[in-house]
Design a protein around this nucleic acid. Structure first.
Lengths: 172, 172
DNA sequence: TATGAATAGTTTATTAATGTACTAAATAAA
DNA sequence: TTTATTTAGTACATTAATAAACTATTCATA
């Protein structure tokens, strides 16, 4: 490890002393991404519980909100929300039970299901958005728009590297 | 929403048309962090399964590897690895059963447990590190060290904002 | 010194998430 | 046209993760 260690994590310094080839910078990116995701998840769950939603449910609803005609398919949702297909089934079952989404057969491909927001789903989302957005906006207010944009851009470059390099182990 | 939408996600553009106050940049940060964390998790699980480890187990082992005397406590591990304490218990139970860590009572505080890597734990870690590190290094090779450092720094600024703003909802 | 509050870690029940197997349908190849 | 392969989504069993409750211990306050 020839470059400087990220300063916020004393563990990394010790690791690099013990294993000099440890890619500390990349490990720090990964670790911090996980911290962000976890912290936001907990925080969002607390806020959304007042509306009877969990964070993963909310994410699916938002993906539908951001789709043409509030409409999508389980596979597209799985991809967009970084969830496995079996979990999409579980989550959409829950949202169906809550009357927030509806399932219908696709007219163009009989394997496919179409999922759309119900009016109640749109209503609940728009009811929850003031608190959700102000919470997130509060966080964002400490960082300039340019810095946020740069952060996203750098994140996306890291993600792009994952696409270039399929896992060295057996395919899942 | 007055600034440009991150370009990689068409959902965000539609969301902002429907709800103009949506903080798109911050949402993009959050979403991309989750994508990174998920992708790395899946990728690491595939690599580590050859060594009989899961990604969360590996993370704990690495935290111990980066601690003085390979030694820590469940609470410190929970914090460092972004896991809840009940999950630390579950994970450390598993690692104990595998003989990779050992528990002992703390001499300074009877509430506390000390957890340390066993020689088998150190051995397994160092056996897994070549493939783990080369995998991660491969990803990192597409981004300059300066860019990685900047990415981490920006991530950490986002995290710092979370500390400044406790959740608006009831404390968990 | 006694009492109240906070901390540490585990247990337990519950929910969340995943891997695998499956059926039906679509697509690709022969 | 037939066969092989891939895709879509769900069922099911299993593992992963969590909230709440708990006991013991430590720390803070009166």
């Amino acid at each position: 490890m020839s470059e400087e260690t990220p300063s916020r994590d004393p563990h990394l310094q010790v690791i690099c002393q013990r294993y000099p080839d440890y890619p500390a910078q990349a490990a720090a990116v990964v670790r911090t991404a996980k911290l962000i995701a976890r912290r936001i998840h907990d925080r969002a769950n607390a806020t959304l519980s007042e509306h009877g939603l969990t964070h993963p449910e909310y994410n699916l609803l938002m993906m539908l909100y951001g789709s043409d005609d509030y409409r999508s398919t389980p596979s597209l949702l799985a991809q967009a929300a970084a969830e496995k297909s079996a979990n999409i089934t579980r989550l959409t079952d829950q949202l169906c039970r809550k009357g927030l989404i509806a399932r219908s057969p696709s007219l163009s491909d009989r394997r496919k299901i179409e999922i759309s927001l119900t009016p109640a789903g749109v209503g609940l989302l728009e009811e929850s958005l003031p608190s959700t957005c102000s919470d997130l906006q509060e966080l964002a207010s400490h960082i300039s728009v340019q810095d946020l944009q740069q952060l996203v851009q750098l994140q996306q470059r890291f993600l792009a590297a994952l696409d270039l390099h399929p896992s060295a182990a057996r395919p899942a």
